[in-house]
Amino acid sequence: MSETSVQSEQQRNSGSGSLQPLVQVENLKKYFPIMGGVFQRKVGDVKAVDGVSFTINKGESFGLVGESGCGKSTIGRTLLRLNDKTEGSVHFEGKDLHALSKSELRHMRTKMQIVFQDPFSSLNPRIKVGEAIGEALLDHGLVSRKDLKDRVIETMKICGLADYHYDRFPHEFSGGQRQRIGIARALIMDPEFIVADEPVSALDVSIQAQIINLMSDLQREKQLTYLFISHDLSVVEHLCNRVGVMYLGTMMEMAPTDELFSNPLHPYTKALMSAIPVPDPTLKRERIVLQGDIPSPANPPSGCKFHTRCPMASDICKEQVPEYRNMGNEHFVACHFA
């Protein structure tokens, strides 16, 4: 155990220390058109992602947190070009991902993968598990048909599945096992970068811990880089070196994990942290309960998007968009009062 923690600590340091960027996102915007009226004309935009920039360095695990509608999943998908972008750029290993041709992109796909949230809809119900895990290798010509099964079974074992699962169908597995299948499918390509889109939020607590441990083991062994998307701050704190907090398509705060959790600067981050129920009945905390609902991303508030719910809001917040500033220690925040 102690050995593990030393290794992991090194990992964490090298992640933020050596600073070799793998993914660079610059001013990324993704708007989904709203169609309406008799002729299905565009009547507005859902601003799912509205000008977000960040960099993920090699070997680090970057967490994105936020509530529903904050655009964190859209970022994950746009970043892998599963969606087209509206504006901005995504560079992977220095190449502009959204400018690649179809065949270049197909080649690039082997280096970046995604693990989905819903372990039920992320597997094709009519394809056997072994086949689902191995088909991409075959399709990209990375393995001969002869060696395919061995490769698949090897990967399945790494992910905690057994060889006799090879010929089973997805419906025969529990949620946790399906998530292992999803991870194996991503892992077999030997990617450098994995987007994990809420991989544990559909699972039970005891299974969540298994999957989180599996993912951190894999990261250590394969030197993976993660973009870990979650609504659960405690999971992100456990797994990530750096965390970005999003609200309505905008990055509100971004900092190394320890810095963010010991010294949250944005009132939204503070509220989010205090809203998480802690399994300790003796703990009496000063809780910040935010008033009101999350506004619709189709019609976000003016100025600072958080001002409608912010306990500190004043006139300037309604009018001016706060600047996204570096407060030192790699700690960025977008708030007038930070």
């Binding site: 593990t4 607590v205 005891s206 989180i212």
Partner: peptide, 12 residues
Amino acid sequence: AKPIINQRKERL
């Protein structure tokens, strides 16, 4: 098994 905020463990 549950990760708790501000009580970071190396391994769950």
